[in-house]
Design a protein around this nucleic acid. Structure first.
Lengths: 212, 212, 212, 212
DNA sequence: CGATAACCGAGACGGTACGTCTAGTCTTATC
DNA sequence: GATAAGACTAGACGTACCGTCTCGGTTATCG
């Protein structure tokens, strides 16, 4: 059975305060301006208390990001096209916040540090990828998506363009352009030769309803 | 008439040496490990000589990247599919080098600094985008690409997936997967099997209007 | 009750090492060549550890000088003339060393900084002045020195000439000239009516032999 | 005959402006805060123009001091005691000004640099010492001063105490104390055996008359 | 009168030291 | 044994000056 280790147990309150102040400061000053001293001070905690839990600033930021993951509900509307559109808008909504911007930087900065990148993939991206895979699997099963479509390819195609756009322009993709991009991606993912007329009608209707 | 500014002119040799040693160190130690002192030392230059030219490390790195831009020849094989494939493999080849990895980090780190991001877009990405736009215009004109295809949308679709993959996995996309991705993207970009004649007229008009 | 301040206490060893290396470097390179970086390096200490204790190089040098004060023993030979001569030779011996030269520079450099000058007076010069005052008091009591002689006047008269000489020539006063100066000063300090013959003989002999 | 060297001659105006701004800045910011850049800027002159004339800041300061020497008139009142008193008060008056304070620092800072110290002695102190020697010689000749009195010894005795006092306290000696010091020094310098009673009366009278 | 030479201002050059900041570790007394 | 506090070594930061150099241009003497 798991025995309690001796001595004073680590304060859960301190841990939470550190993570919270990390995210707050990440939003305020950006990844570049983050310092462990400032994080500890805002959390009302000594610096060594931070180091005791995370080896480096990067590790702390990764942990803080992971701690903010929301489940990314897979809504299962019964329509693969609609499901994918919802995931895409969910992604862009996340990227719009101040924290969201930082996430990209963390990805880029963390590249070399394999364990951290691994943790980020496992706990931050993994769940999203799994939810995404479920959507794709349902779409393939229902015949809406191409039979040979692999989930990771669909993921790259759907999320790649808006992320690339953000990276280059510094701004999240606007709604109009997002719709155009999605329409094009859908052509690459959808099972073949749907009747042209009905397809175009549905697109117009849907995108009109789904825009924010 | 344009007069020379008074005083000793800045040394072009020093400038070049700084840019060169910046790129060399970026490849060796990565963006995170870059130090203005180390750059200056390797360039055989005093630290103030660096600060005199660039306000910050970020600005210097952006300038160094810009100084390495190669024209990105547009080969014009006469086949739009082949042209696009060549651009895609060119991108991944660039990303494979040690410097290429750093570029992504620079993009992410620089996001907030608008002037730097602007410079990076204008001088590093801009030329590539222009070459890309030319390829797309030719493809549209020849009827191989969809008549309503806009160059920036094609750019996001083609380059977004491999970049996204690199960002997530830390590794450039493998050849096999790159081919699969390209095949899917092509489905989104290619003109349908319509009769060539009618479509080409419309397309020619469009691409003329959309080019920048 | 006096409570200890929290946190790690300052290292007494580091403090001592800094003071020691300050005096060593003062002797080696002079006041002008002193560098906080060099002091810290020789003390095996980080630069901030120096700044944490002293606000400036001047403050550090003053502290280092103070830390080297030796009690300046008042020997009390029973003869006021002999006591004063011993103090004078003690002063010149101190000034002869490499450090001694620096002291003058510190005095001059520190003039404007009242707190530092005050500290120097209180802890470096003060003790010497007190010992000096005791000698004068005994001499007055025994009738060897003028009844109305004030200690600070005696101090200026005795130490002023050799210091002035050092300041002007850069060299401590030679023994021969020191003796002549002392003989003259003694005339100004001694109680009058010594038997003219013996006193004048001794003085005459001395000053005659010692004059240059 | 001495030929004029070819090329554009050095600007006398620039030289004078540099010396003037040196003295002004010495008074404003002190020796420690002096920089060649600031001196050149205030003189409206390029930095190399300063270096062309003086090898170092110290050399410049010495030159600037020398350029301000006033002849130090020897008034020759016919009374040696009065002459000496006038020289003493002349010294203290000089030391009272802001520049005067700096002079001491220059002496101390310059110690090691023999050529500069030599120049300072030759051109700044030398003339004063010569005037002083003349006073002493007259006093000896008239029998007021001791027959065996050497000028340099008299100089040390007269100027040493107030200089020493300034060095220690940072303030010039006050009038009352200056009088007491002078009275004592006079005892050391004056020819001997005046009747005690009359001598003391004279001293009292004199010092009363001589006070400022 | 044109050539030559040393000066002039401005300002960049390679360096060095400054004083501050942050990293990551260590040492207290307290809980 | 974890805690808050705060010191520790190490080293990068961006700035200020140093003393030298390189510009374009000016002002003198000399041929």
């Amino acid at each position: 059975m798991a025995r309690r280790s001796p001595g004073r147990p680590r304060s859960a309150a301190a841990e939470q305060a550190i993570l919270t102040s990390t995210m707050a400061l990440l939003a305020e000053v950006g990844l570049h301006g983050l310092t462990i001293g400032a994080i500890a001070a805002r959390a009302g905690v000594g610096r060594p208390t931070v180091y005791r839990r995370w080896r480096s600033l990067e590790a702390l930021v990764v942990a803080a990001l992971i701690s903010t993951v929301r489940p990314l509900r897979d809504l299962d509307t019964g329509d693969a096209r609609r499901d994918l559109w919802l995931m895409l808008t969910g992604l862009t909504r996340d990227l719009r916040g101040r924290v969201g911007r930082g996430v990209l930087g963390v990805h880029a900065a963390v590249q070399a540090h394999s364990p951290l990148a691994q943790a980020l993939r496992d706990h931050y991206l993994g769940p999203r990828a799994r939810a995404f895979a479920a959507v794709v699997a349902r779409g393939v099963a229902s015949g809406q998506l191409r039979a040979d479509l692999e989930p990771h390819l669909a993921l790259d195609l759907l999320f790649g363009p808006p992320i690339y756009h953000l990276l280059l322009t510094g701004e999240p993709m606007g709604t109009r352009r997002l719709k155009a991009t999605f329409a094009a991606v859908w052509r690459a993912l959808a099972a073949r030769p749907q009747p042209v007329s009905s397809s175009s009608t549905r697109e117009g209707r849907r995108s009109g309803r789904l825009g924010r």
